[in-house]
Simulated scan of single mutants.
Amino acid sequence: MSCFRSCPAVFSFLFATLFFAQNQQQMPRDYRGVETNVPGIFVTPVPNAPFSATVDILSHETLPDGTVNTRTTTAHVARASSGRIYNERRQLVPASFKGEPQLLSALVYDPSSRLSIFYNPYEHLARERNLPRPPAAPANSVPAFTPPNNPYFKQEDIGTQPLDGLTLTGIRKTHIIPAAMSGTGKEIAIVDEYWYSSDLSIYMIIKHNDPRTGEQLVAVSNVERHEPAASVFAIPANYKIVDENPPELPATQQPTEAAPAQR
């Protein structure tokens, strides 16, 4: 506090920096070129809502030369009554591909112990770690925070729709990129739709459309609302378990409470 009183130049600089940063949050990010991120579905680890399903992903990616690269994949997700989840990522493949796409990774998470098991199929490793907090949703898998009173963002409710016995509630988020910043010379509207199932506590449909990069669709299908087999959450027999928890300190090195101050 004394520095602010004796260093008005420093205070003015910090105030200007804070003002600039706050106003920068109102501006859309610069366009970095074709970056297509399709994260899939985030399965929330909540109890008493068991299910298993497949996640279908379809990507129409517009390339710089104007051609469209169409890719697709199908992954598997599940949740036990305890809240334990299984979620996997599989390779995006051409639409003509036959068979099951290659597994890229898989995650098992138990909210009761916060034990996270990450599967690395390339090295056949199961990396175990107790997390200090539940896992966060990947970018674009849930609606991002929209700054209030921002002319470049708009959020609207788009009603409900039925799907496989569920009622989905939808929201649409529109992100405007001014012509001077879009890289195209024209104003661009990036539109994201999220359709949520309160019964399953997950987003069942996610749509992303950016005229510069194309359109991506993520949809949950083949939902079976009963307890998944225990084998879904079991570590494959041909995987090596790696404990990635930090080693515990010996008793002599454990931190102790500070002694009370002498009066």
Rank of each mutant, 00 (worst) to 15 (best):
I85T: 06
S12T: 11
V77G: 00
I206N: 01
S2I: 13
P228D: 05
P211C: 03
E248C: 07
V77Q: 00
L131W: 02
A144L: 12
D65H: 09
I188T: 06
A126G: 09
T74L: 05
E248I: 09
H60G: 03
V232L: 13
G66Q: 07
D192A: 14
A251E: 15
Y239V: 02
A75R: 00
A80D: 02
S112D: 10
P148Q: 11
A9G: 15
D192F: 04
T17H: 06
V220A: 00
I241N: 14
I188N: 01
Q24C: 15
V242F: 03
V108C: 01
I158A: 05
P250S: 03
M204P: 01
E123T: 14
A53N: 00
A144E: 14
V108Y: 00
Y86G: 00
S231L: 04
A16T: 15
V93I: 10
N150T: 08
G40P: 02
L131V: 04
I205M: 07
P255N: 03
N87L: 07
Y194V: 03
S116Y: 02
P50H: 08
Q161G: 07
Y109H: 02
N150S: 10
R133T: 14
I117R: 00
Q161R: 15
R89D: 06
E257S: 15
G165N: 10
A180D: 13
P132Y: 04
L200D: 00
A229G: 12
I241W: 12
N87F: 02
T67I: 11
I235V: 13
S141K: 00
P162G: 14
L14R: 09
A75D: 08
H208G: 04
K207W: 12
S12R: 15
I202V: 12
I41R: 00
W195T: 00
S2H: 14
A259H: 12
I176F: 13
L18A: 12
P47T: 14
A106C: 08
P250N: 04
P134I: 01
P134G: 07
V77L: 04
P111G: 04
V10D: 14
Q91C: 05
I241P: 07
P121S: 05
T213Q: 04
A180S: 12
T252P: 04
S197K: 01
D243R: 14
P94C: 08
F19V: 15
N37V: 13
H175V: 07
N69S: 12
N150F: 08
F97L: 11
Y119L: 13
I188W: 01
I176P: 01
P246T: 06
L168W: 01
S6T: 09
E215F: 09
T70D: 11
P111L: 03
A80G: 01
I177L: 13
